[in-house]
Design a protein around this nucleic acid. Structure first.
Lengths: 214, 214
DNA sequence: GGAAAACGGGGAGAACATCTCCGTTTCGGA
DNA sequence: TCCGAAACGGAGATGTTCTCCCCGTTTTCC
């Protein structure tokens, strides 16, 4: 559906105010989802974007579609972050560290809650994007592991879940507070990831599939 | 209000099925809040407790009161955990470690979301309980810091927020998954807390007030 | 064995979110 | 500058969900 909408949009060069409003709505939706979760009233999103609710419905058929677009955007941007960290950093652990903090800035944690609410995990585009992210982060971790800087008993899932958890807006508050703590806590967590391990971990390394197949 | 209810309850020795149902409702509410957040339908809680919704309303005037009771219970239990760790463990960092994992088992993270939804922070009982917890955890951290096992650049709030974040049910899933990761992640975080510090942290140590006064 | 208390299910009432209608405004080309 | 087409915004109909109460039935305890 996203593809179709884009195609239509290109066929008819669309008015500038229409495309601007579309962007505004997506941005507002991202913020609103981050702050109030995936079931924030669509009217609130429209209001935050400074448009009428009818405009929102004109651009997106329903909440489902809006979530899909917002989530896809974010997924793509985080993957970019992982790949640029891979390409540009020379030190393996520094690359990992950079990715973690950048991903946090994208508010992965908050947006992850979109995944459950009618988000089509089997959409080919989404699957591709997810595999791309998986592979990039796996490479980041492999590099760090091989260079002896990352403890060997942690997996991809350990890192991803921890990032999402630590970057979520705390409890019922807005997102203002977490900004102050997020990077401190991620840094502490990263320090715990460094080799040599300072303790033994319970359970086994968590892979991506572990929480995809839930 | 909680005090009054208890007083009434003692004045009239109450039937055993009534008190049993009350306990059941509290337990069910705790689980439901953990899994679905503070606005889970009260009917769902009643159903989970195996009672009719009328029974729930007979015991608790409204959602507000139920939340209050559940939160107070949990706060008290976590404080107990902190104090028993202080009293029983000889190694300072081990005491801290034990407290962190026990607090996680109490599902602090999930229940923290109750705090915002009409929870009376100024109720004298609550204030006392909170101060008790604060003081106990502060002592745990002081001991560990003095023994040279805890890095000096972290504060009470850093620890408390990280615990709540890492022990929350991830995104929109039930609570089943997190059980597997929680303790691993807490352990990794604790490893990051150990002295000597492996990196420099941004910002300043977070105190309790920092996020109480939001 | 009986009165008092507690229980459960069903349903009225209110609140909220979604999505549409239609008169008005804005854009972009001639 | 002017006009047609497209987009806009607000208000409201519709449907759903949660809250809370009523009342007939069951359970407890003296």
């Amino acid at each position: 559906m996203g593809g179709m909408a884009t195609a239509e949009r290109k066929a008819q060069p669309a008015r500038v105010d229409a495309t601007r409003n579309r962007e505004r709505i997506i941005a507002a939706a991202r913020e609103a989802f981050v702050e109030h979760g995936p079931s924030v009233p669509l009217d609130a999103i429209a209001h935050r974007a400074g448009v009428g609710n009818a405009t929102l419905y004109r651009h997106f058929a329903d909440r489902h579609e809006l979530i899909h677009v917002v989530a896809s955007y974010s997924l793509a941007r985080i993957t970019e972050q992982a790949e640029s960290a891979l390409a540009e950093e020379t030190d393996a652990f520094e690359a990992l560290r950079r990715f973690v903090h950048r991903a946090a800035d994208e508010r992965v944690g908050a947006l992850c809650s979109l995944l459950y609410e009618g988000f089509d995990k089997n959409d080919p585009n989404v699957v591709d994007a997810r595999l791309g992210l998986e592979s990039a982060v796996e490479r980041l971790m492999d590099n760090a592991r091989r260079s002896g800087q990352l403890r060997p008993d942690v997996g991809l899932g350990d890192l991803m879940v921890a990032i999402t958890q630590l970057t979520r807006p705390p409890a019922g508050t807005g997102c203002a507070l977490i900004e102050r703590f997020m990077h401190r806590h991620l840094q502490l967590f990263l320090d715990g990831l460094r080799a040599p391990a300072r303790s033994e971990l319970s359970g086994t390394a968590v892979t991506f599939e572990d929480f995809e197949t839930s």
